[in-house]
Write a protein that binds this DNA or RNA. Structure first.
Lengths: 345, 345
DNA sequence: TGAATTCTCGCAATCGATTGCATTTGGATT
DNA sequence: AATCCAAATGCAATCGATTGCGAGAATTCA
């Protein structure tokens, strides 16, 4: 049925009594080969069932036309949107996209980085994991001149392009909104502070509170990994405070959801008793009851932007401009979980 | 800063005045090299910042230690669960996983297949797209002896291992449940019938109906791509029938959700007026109001199983057993959207 | 028609790691 | 000390495609 070994350009060359170099050029549609032989070669290749061996070509050219993407989880709407944005631009430019998820696990992230380097991807787009505090595995890329772009969860200390959303302003806006809706004792459930995005969200929260004349009550601040159980534990703790919160700004929607579910089980109503705002606009946030107010990040556009920057860098070989930090606007979406009354009342 | 070219085993060999072959063996921890030189070589490699060039090695060995995964969408809970299962087994066996999404687009699926072949992945795990009716791009793998395993959305006509859930029985069970709950005019919103899973779901629905003595009303059957807008359109159509449905079995949760949302807007209550069951147990199905009854597929386990079969085939080089068709059990999860009364009443 | 170009195409090196086979080294044996 | 065996290392080919350079063939121009 199938041959023992795959046909190569040499097999084609032999059959046609020409040189392998001509076959190679013809298959790459190099116009230095006359159109007639080019057609002949292509047709013969087709007949012989020839399929290019990308490894051999990559080996020779030292290019793979592949960009590697490292994300914490592919199953988050935000990340998969970014991936779609990356893919769109990549395919348009003839690049394949290799996706790997770190599962927020440092060792796996390191391993992926090593694999990407070994496998000579032409460039890398990364959003780092929650556990990541050491960046040597990523610094490797910048050291070895492999184009690198960060998005969302960036490593500040590594020189590279960075695409982020305005977490500070978004958090400020979310908190301000909770205040407008009557929140007086506003809690914040945030993520690990080694990630700048969570520092910024905390900062936005704090400044909005201070602007409104509220003090920062440390017992109203909890930082964890933002999983569903983390959210439940956090809200349990908050509700056991002497001063219970009447509003909670959660650093992601998963946490917001688990908070709402827990509050319901203990008979506390959202938004009547406690106002809730989440972050990231996961699809479920729109369809749960009550629907969850959240911050919508332009994931698709961020992916596009990241891929554009990366590909430009790959193609030009050198970074002709200084590293950019692109701050994308995010949008507060007000839904039921935080809407008690119009602010114009 | 960085050298112009990456250090190779030849650089190490030169520095140590030994042969490159010895370096290669040492780095692969081949015990034919004495332990002392092995350590010396490893240490020197480390000092020189040597990192293996996987492309060169892959080129020579004709193995990449990579398995390619093609799924319609990475952002579906079911698929990302499968991917996690695949990754677990793959990493445990020293394989990397390359994930690509077809977006249910035939051209993209073809392109991915070609890339995977060109790039010489050691094996492929596939769930085909909704538009896919031609399988030449996948037959290629079986022709060229690239191990191939299908899951969920399988191509029946291609000889390969197949991991599926019992769609027929699941659909039968779901429909039976709707009947138990008092459904008399039960509609079905299904997927494209070129995919066997949707044929099976339809079949399960039909047989459960017939068993209960209900006829099959063609106006109660709609097949589309199961997107959110498809769901809305479908339910609009159903509700404009002379005989409106009092229960709907949807072939995925997205459709079930859009049906529920639409019915709410026109004042019809779920489950009081219309019973709903979905499929796949998307995370949101548990948290929306009303929560959606659905079929839970063992995605993670399917991924594990698929990876195990694939890796066995890769390692043994030959398929020693006939191609297997593994049918995994699925489970009906009864939630609010279909629960009107206990069946023991 | 001869010379100068322009087109086509072939030669051969190359990329970095692996591996079958040959060779050397070191020690053991007699 | 001569021989032998095993352990350790080196030699060199190899994988398939690409590409700089050179050469022959075809075409054009004077």
């Amino acid at each position: 049925m199938a041959k023992q070994t795959e046909p190569t350009i040499h097999d084609i060359a032999k059959k046609l009594n020409i040189a392998a170099s001509t076959v190679s050029r013809a298959l790459n549609n190099n116009s230095i080969v006359s159109e007639s032989t080019r057609n002949l070669i292509k047709q013969t290749a087709q007949e012989m069932g020839y399929l290019p061996n990308a490894i051999a070509a990559n080996f020779r050219t030292k290019r793979t036309n592949t960009i590697g993407v490292i994300v914490p989880l592919i199953n988050r709407h935000f990340f998969s949107s970014v991936i779609s944005g990356i893919e769109e631009i990549a395919y348009k430019n003839g690049f394949a996209v290799a996706i790997s998820q770190s599962n927020d696990n440092f060792e796996k992230e390191e391993k992926i980085a090593r694999t990407f380097f070994s496998t000579r991807v032409d460039g890398v787009i990364v959003s780092i994991g929650m556990q990541t505090t050491n960046f040597e595995h990523l610094r490797l890329f910048s050291k070895r001149k492999v184009p690198l772009v960060f998005f969302d969860r960036v490593a500040e200390e590594i020189p590279a392009h960075k695409i982020v959303v305005d977490d500070y302003r978004s958090a400020y806006r979310a908190t301000e909104h909770l205040i407008e809706q009557g929140g007086k004792h506003i809690a914040h459930i945030g993520g690990p502070l080694n990630l700048k995005i969570y520092q910024d969200r905390l900062q936005g929260y704090k400044e909005a509170m201070q602007k409104a004349g509220f003090g920062i009550d440390e017992s109203m601040l909890i930082h964890n990994s933002l999983t569903r159980t983390d959210g439940t534990n956090a809200v349990k703790k908050l509700m056991s405070n002497k001063q219970k919160p009447d509003a909670i700004f959660c650093a992601n929607d998963t946490t917001a959801l688990s908070v709402i579910i827990y509050l319901r089980t203990i008979g506390i109503k959202v938004p009547e008793d406690v106002l809730i705002v989440g972050f990231s606009n996961e699809p479920f946030s729109e369809v749960v009851t009550p629907s969850i107010s959240t911050i919508k990040q332009p994931g698709f556009e961020m992916g596009q932007k990241a891929a554009e920057l990366l590909i430009t860098e790959i193609k030009t070989k050198t970074t002709i401009y200084p590293y950019q930090r692109i701050v994308m606007p995010a949008e507060l979406i007000i839904r039921e979980s935080s809407f008690r009354r119009s602010k114009h009342k």
